[in-house]
Simulated assay, not measured.
Amino acid sequence: MMKLRHILLASTLLLAACGKTSDQHAESKGTIAVSLLSLQNPFFKVIGDSIIAEAKKNGYDTLVVSADGDVARQSNQIKDFIVKDVAAIVLSPTDSKAIVTVIQEANAAAIPVFTVDVPCNEPGVKIATQVATDNFGGGKMAAEAMIEALQGQGGKIGVLDMKQVESCILRVKGFKEVLAAHNATAARKIEIVSELDCHGANDKGYKATEDMLQAQPDLVGIFAINDPGALGARGAIEKAGRTDKVVIIGFDGQPEGKQAIKEGKIYADPIQFPDKMGAEVVRAFMRYSKGEELPPQMLIPTSLYRKADGAADASLK
């Protein structure tokens, strides 16, 4: 079925090329269609660019679009991919539960579906494989960084989460697991007293942190599920005049986040490798197209990035 689709698609492209340069689509094996959470987020832009580069190496065209965090938009994009009869669909789900129905439509059309960064672990869907950061492990690393930053003092902390996105749920789960183990033996416990949705955005992180600080004036730390949320938290903490009282742990390792770590505005980030994710999901498709059996998921470990790493990072100012 896969080979037949590629032959038909290649034939269609060649017919469409009549009147243009004869070799415009001659090398294309088909199209890998990609719907990412938001191309406004530099992290997903890197994933998209990496997919394009790796697909080109392997003779495939790409169609990369932004869902802009809108599940209805993403559903329509996937329906469009199905109509186009693409070779494969890659997506980072805006909502892992709400996107199930349209993934099932792709399954029914025999188009392989891969997820990147954000998994979809819902029943009733077939995902060829999920390529992602080890988000659970990264969340555990974030908790270890929080324990390190608080230097045994303990206290009240807040979490800026994003409950509709599976990867963020896993980060918070890992974070809580390590804190629970720490609190079981620690003389001074670290207590999560507030959890608010930052929508993974700077402005929402700012507002959520303002609300946290008003409700919990003795807050000593914040864990944000990504860098935009962490940078928004930093802005609110600066406005409140509490920069020497509240430590921030972010997640991602975007350039802006790394710069903030270098400047001491964020304590640390478990950093991800979006370039590796983009390349790996294309390689997974290539293996799939050759009939290889893929594991359910391919996880890429995070690495903890502190101020010393920022000072040695030639890519920063």
Rank of each mutant, 00 (worst) to 15 (best):
L8F: 00
S11G: 04
L14S: 13
L15E: 14
G19W: 03
S22F: 07
H25E: 00
A26T: 02
T31R: 00
I32Q: 02
D49Y: 00
N58R: 13
Y60G: 02
V64D: 03
V64F: 00
S66V: 00
A72S: 12
A72P: 01
N76W: 01
I82S: 08
K84S: 14
L91R: 13
L91K: 12
P93L: 12
D95W: 01
A110N: 15
I111P: 04
V116C: 14
V116D: 09
K126Q: 15
V131H: 06
A143H: 09
A149P: 05
Q151Y: 06
G152F: 04
D161R: 05
E166K: 02
E166A: 13
C168L: 03
L170E: 14
G174R: 01
V178W: 02
A180C: 05
N183E: 12
I192L: 12
H199N: 09
D211M: 05
D211F: 04
Q216W: 08
P217H: 14
A240D: 07
P255N: 04
E263A: 10
P270F: 00
I271R: 08
K276N: 10
R283L: 11
A284W: 01
Y288Q: 03
L294T: 06
M298Q: 13
L299I: 06
T302V: 09
L304K: 04
Y305Q: 09
G310A: 07
K317L: 09
